[in-house]
Design a protein around this nucleic acid. Structure first.
Lengths: 161, 161
DNA sequence: CTCGATGCAAAATGTTTGCACGCAG
DNA sequence: CTGCGTGCAAACATTTTGCATCGAG
């Protein structure tokens, strides 16, 4: 609850492989590759990007296998997927590390911030509403510093936001 | 900056209609209906639900018209769409009122909370990262009170969450 | 009367499924 | 060997687009 030891992409990859062997009935090259692509990205990939990347490295793999495994791996508890802002869903390794994503709706850029920033929110949500937020795999949509300076559309209806 | 005066569904509907007349080149019955459905729901509707509901009330409307208008209306600044947790995108009136959504990943339920709860987060994000979160149209994914008591899958990889 | 909006149907996109074969265990 | 996982292709759900017609202004 306080020591966020950073996990290297390599270590994570090994841990995931171990977990795969442990939880999956069969460990196939395809599954290994998919897992490797996801953990190796050190971030998030859309299903589409995964299909592209995996197909690139192993052209014989069919999209259906990838989709099926994305679900299977998520079922095994090795990966998870989230929605970032308005974009497509993103897959990531489960123990990806605790951080929050800020997605800029104007420029589309994303940045990661430390979990400390939202610790108080976490506390009050749990305290007031009994809701335990899953803040590791979670994105906040808004406007980044750079875009805030530019032309931003204000509420056109005059509501006090 | 502190008076969140609640807007009745009726008032909102009228305001939206006025804005529609103001910003759209043409005001058609279809647009009016779509707008009415969205503002009347007093909440959020998936594109699919809107298609269903609108078609119900006006069977001659084709889905393409609805999709086109969802985009058009969003372009006019009358509505917006967000992604709630893992579910489908939801459309809502722009001046829907400031609140945050808590989406339970276990039971799929959602609850709305007041904006005050996340005011401090808002402040620190802006302060520390220069990022202006769009917290009105935004969802937090996690586990609700009820489901927290039940069987919850913990991190299967042993990472410290 | 004009030109934006609509309805229809076909297309594009992204994901899922049935089935027979192949390979991990 | 056994049966889970794979590749292929077809099915699907959802959203987009071309085009002729319609109707709001």
């Amino acid at each position: 609850m306080m020591g966020e030891k950073p996990v290297s992409s390599d270590t994570r990859s090994q841990r995931l492989l171990a977990a795969l062997k442990d939880r999956a009935p069969r460990v196939t090259p395809q599954r290994r590759l998919i897992l490797e692509v996801i953990s190796g990205s050190d971030g998030h990939l859309s299903a589409d990007a995964i299909v592209t990347e995996v197909t690139l490295r192993m052209p014989t793999v069919s999209p259906s296998t990838i989709y099926r495994n994305l679900q299977a791996l998520e079922g095994f508890g090795l990966i998870s997927h989230i929605h970032m802002g308005h974009g497509p869903a993103q897959y990531q390794a489960i123990d990806h590390g605790a951080h929050l994503h800020l997605v800029c709706g104007t420029c589309g850029g994303t940045q990661e911030i430390d979990r400390d920033t939202i610790r108080s929110l976490e506390a009050s949500l749990l305290d007031v509403h009994g809701f335990k937020p899953n803040l590791e795999h979670f994105a906040i949509y808004g406007t980044c510093k750079g875009c805030a300076s530019g032309p931003v559309r204000s509420n056109p209806l005059g509501g006090e936001s």
